[in-house]
């Protein structure tokens, strides 16, 4: 196995996805033998120049400086992998895309003129070519390890994009929607987490974003008509993690109804 150079980058984010790498515990030592960690400020202050074989990018692009920096990282990286809901969908902070960011800065900062920020929070893929995306808030460390091991061995990783229900039923969970009437985003949400929330009898809140085939119109109607869900509540659920993604048109259409 070749020793490859790994870099881990942070943009607008909470660091939770980077921590997933440190959270690999048992696999961490063997992994550190297989890769050379060239840039990973969360783990080490040692900084090495590129090029890098693999760049893991956490966080969304929110400033003009970010836009320049992600382009430099792209140029220095053979594989660029966006990790987490921020890097792949703009993150929760993309809620600002629906409002006037200048109004926010004028309210929050004493000297808003010092703040240089973009109007929108956007995924990495809006700015540079991304080779692979790992979804989730946070990402699943097993998926991350799978991707790294695949690349170390010269294999193309395959990340399934089916709905979460497959993983939930494989765990033999009783469906929270059918048995309790709990709204669950699982049927329209990208699998990969192992159905964590439904395993604890919570509805999925969709942090992995939309699955490959999304029929939110049908699921939303069911919640409104059968569960008596308010439209505002429905729109809020669609927008928590998916402000810019494939659910955006559904959120707009439900928001528009009767408004």
């Amino acid at each position: 196995m070749r020793k490859i150079r790994l870099a881990v980058w942070k943009f607008a984010s909470c660091d939770g996805c980077q921590l997933s790498l440190l959270d690999c515990e048992e696999e961490l030592l063997p992994l550190s033998e297989a890769v050379e960690v060239a840039y990973f400020l969360e783990a080490s202050r040692r900084v090495e120049k590129g090029p890098y074989h693999i760049s893991l990018v956490e966080g969304s692009i929110t400033t003009p400086h970010d836009v320049e920096r992600i382009k430099r990282i792209r140029r220095a990286s053979r594989y660029l992998i966006a990790i987490g809901a921020c890097a792949t969908a703009g993150g929760i902070q993309a809620l600002r895309n629906l409002r006037d960011v200048e109004e926010f800065t004028s309210l929050v900062y004493a000297r808003p003129e010092y703040i240089d920020t973009l109007k929108d929070s956007t995924p990495v893929s809006h700015h540079v070519k991304v080779d692979l995306e790992l979804r989730g808030c946070p990402i699943n460390k097993h998926q991350l390890l799978y991707v790294l091991i695949s690349l170390l061995n010269g294999r193309t990783p395959s990340i399934p994009s089916h709905s979460l229900c497959l993983e939930c039923k494989m765990k033999d969970n009783v469906c929270v929607m059918v048995s309790e009437g709990v709204p669950c985003m699982g049927p329209v949400t990208h699998g990969g987490c192992g159905a964590i929330c439904p395993s604890y009898r919570r509805g999925c809140y969709g942090c992995y974003g939309p699955s490959e085939t999304v029929n939110m119109e049908s699921l939303g109607r069911w919640w409104i008509e059968r569960y008596g869900m308010e439209r505002e509540e429905l729109v809020r659920r669609l927008r928590t993690f998916n402000i810019e993604g494939a659910l955006a048109p559904f959120a707009r259409s439900f928001e528009g109804e009767g408004a």
Partner: peptide, 23 residues
């Protein structure tokens, strides 16, 4: 217009038998 393509019908079906392979 109604189907979510979530696959639940196939997972609860006692006869559905399809599998795939993962390395």
């Amino acid at each position: 217009k109604r189907c979510l393509a979530c696959g639940n019908c196939t997972f609860v079906c006692p006869t559905c038998f399809c599998t795939t392979l993962e390395d």
